[in-house]
Structure formats: C-alpha cells, structure tokens
C-alpha cells in the first residue's frame, strides 16, 4: 500500500518530447515507474527512452491503458493539455507547471471535479512512493521506503525533510507535493485523509507555509477525523507581509495567513509542531510508533 500511486500504476507523460519531459521520463523509468505512453501534439510516432509518443491521448488509449497522467507542459499551454487529460477520465493527473494563470487553473480544477479526476498541483514536484512508483521529479537519493507519509507545499522543503527522515532511520510511505499554487487540486486536508486511511503510514509529516487557508482546513480535519499522529512544520515566520515568497500561494495577507496563526491552530488541533527538519525527527523519535 501507499497513497495515490503504487507498483502497478501505469503512467502517461504529457509533454514527453520536451527537455524536462524527456529527462524526467528517463529518471522515472529508472526508478521503476511504468511509463507506458507519451503525448506531444505533432510528435506522434516518435519514441522517447523507449516510450511511444502519440499526438493525442485518445490515440494513446487505443493502444494502452494507464492510471495516471503527469503533465510537463509549460504554464501557457498546460490548460489545454490538462483539459485533454481530464476528458480521458484518467483518475489521477499531476500538473507540474509553475505560473499557471489563476482563472485557468480554477477552470481546470472545476472540470476535474465534475469528471471525478484527482489533480495534484499545479507547481508540484509530484508524488513518489519510494521503491514503488515515482510520478514526479523528487530526487531518489534522499528517499527510503518506510512508514512516514510526507505532504508538502514546497518541493525543496520535502527533500530536506525526507533527507533528515532517511538519515534518522525513518523511510517514507509516500511523499506528496501539494504544489505552490495559486490554487490547488488536492488540498492538504484531502491528502491527510488518504494517509490516515493507509495502513502503511504510521506518522504523517505536514510541511506547510504562510499564505492561504489550507493549514487551517488541515487543522480542522486533524482535530475531527485524523487518528494517525501528525507532525507539522510551517515555514515563513520571518516572511514580511505582502511579499511573495517564491510561490504564487505564499503571501501573507491578514493575520490568518501568518505562520504563527497556523501553528497555533495546528497545535490546538492536536498536531505536534516542529521548528526544523531535525525537530521533526526528534518528535518522531519520542513517539515510538515506528
């Protein structure tokens, strides 16, 4: 078990002939991911690292079955690609593009909800279950198979946390990149529920940041539904108001967007709060659940 992906997940890559799409296809295959097909308009008939390329998803569907799509298409063209992916009713779509116009991603997410498709992203490194399936760009060398579920709004911060966990002897069940925004498909609360239902996950690490309301929603779910222990780290205490801290969604507006506000809510909800990746390790050490 793991969440969102497993050993059997078959993957289609959108934008497979692009520089990033092609390189990441190679890395994903090396990590054991079953990449069955790729799509780039106008490049049908080509092959990328042994993966057949089609002009349309519909054409790929005539030859293959797949369970997930990862979209490496740049922001300006990603909406079109995302609609095509959702139309195919694939259950799970990862959107990596950064700089997605807000109204475009709003429509994409609304359409996905109508079609029952889960979207991860945008601006996400994707999802990886170490030793099983990698649907994204997480660096393998920091990951070890294990029992900690990690979800994060920031790619690099999840690598940092996974490095600390792996070095401290705690592997990961699944590492999920929620994405940098400006809007989100799967939100923290939904991924928390998935981890809670996963028998393999014994501890959940929530890596949040300033801006928006996702951690507030997470606190509510943690307080009401989640039985698995949650360790939270919220970054951006030192972030000034109104400044955009690298991510489209990381901007402190009003008191509810601050790290302090979020930390207090999470603590009240019963989550353990750590101040650093090493701190997360110490908290898990003390729990003795793994």
């Amino acid at each position: 078990m793991a969440i969102l992906v497993d050993k059997e997940t078959r993957v289609l890559v959108q934008g497979i002939t692009g520089q990033i799409g092609s390189f990441q296809t190679k890395i994903m295959k090396e990590a054991g991911t079953k990449v069955v097909a790729g799509v780039t308009p106008g490049k049908g008939g080509e092959e990328v690292h042994g993966v057949p390329v089609y002009d349309f998803i519909e054409e790929a569907l005539e030859e293959h079955s797949f369970d997930a799509i990862i979209n490496f298409v740049p922001a300006r063209f990603a909406k079109d690609a995302a609609f095509e992916a959702i139309e195919s009713e694939v259950p799970f779509l990862v959107i990596t593009a950064e700089g997605f116009p807000a109204q475009d991603i709003m429509r994409v997410i609304a359409y996905a909800v109508n079609k029952g498709v889960h979207i991860l992203g945008p601006d996400t490194p994707g999802v990886v279950s170490p030793g099983k399936c990698k649907l994204g760009v997480h660096p393998e060398r920091m990951l070890v198979e294990g029992r900690v579920g990690v979800l994060s709004r920031s790619g690099a911060l999840s690598y940092e946390a996974c490095k600390a966990l792996s070095e401290g002897g705690y592997g990961q069940s699944t590492v999920v990149g929620i994405g940098g925004g400006p809007l989100w498909g799967l939100r923290e609360k939904e991924v928390l529920k998935m981890f809670d239902a996963d028998p393999e996950t014994k501890v959940i690490v929530l890596l949040g940041e300033v801006g928006g309301t996702m951690e507030q929603e997470a606190a509510e779910i943690i307080s009401n539904e989640i039985t698995t222990p949650v360790v939270a780290l919220i970054v951006g205490k030192a972030a000034p108001r109104g400044a955009q801290m690298g991510h489209a969604g990381a901007i402190v507006e009003g008191k509810e967007g601050t790290a302090e506000y979020k930390v207090n809510l999470l603590r009240e909800a019963g989550a353990y709060v750590a101040e650093s990746p090493d701190g997360i390790l110490k908290v898990i050490d003390q729990m003795e659940v793994i």
């Binding site: 920031s154 690598y159 940092e160 690298g246």
Partner: peptide, 24 residues
C-alpha cells in the same frame, strides 16, 4: 536557496539562531 520552502525555512532558522536575514 534553491527552493521557496527551504528559503523560508532558512529565514526562520537564521532568526531563531539570533541573526537577521538580509533577504530571501
């Protein structure tokens, strides 16, 4: 830093260590 999240983490850690960050 080479990421937004690690950048914010480091700002916090500089502050916790008694320093004052000059930038993000």
């Amino acid at each position: 830093s080479d990421g937004a999240g690690t950048g914010m983490l480091t700002l916090d850690e500089i502050t916790d260590a008694g320093g004052k960050p000059a930038n993000f």
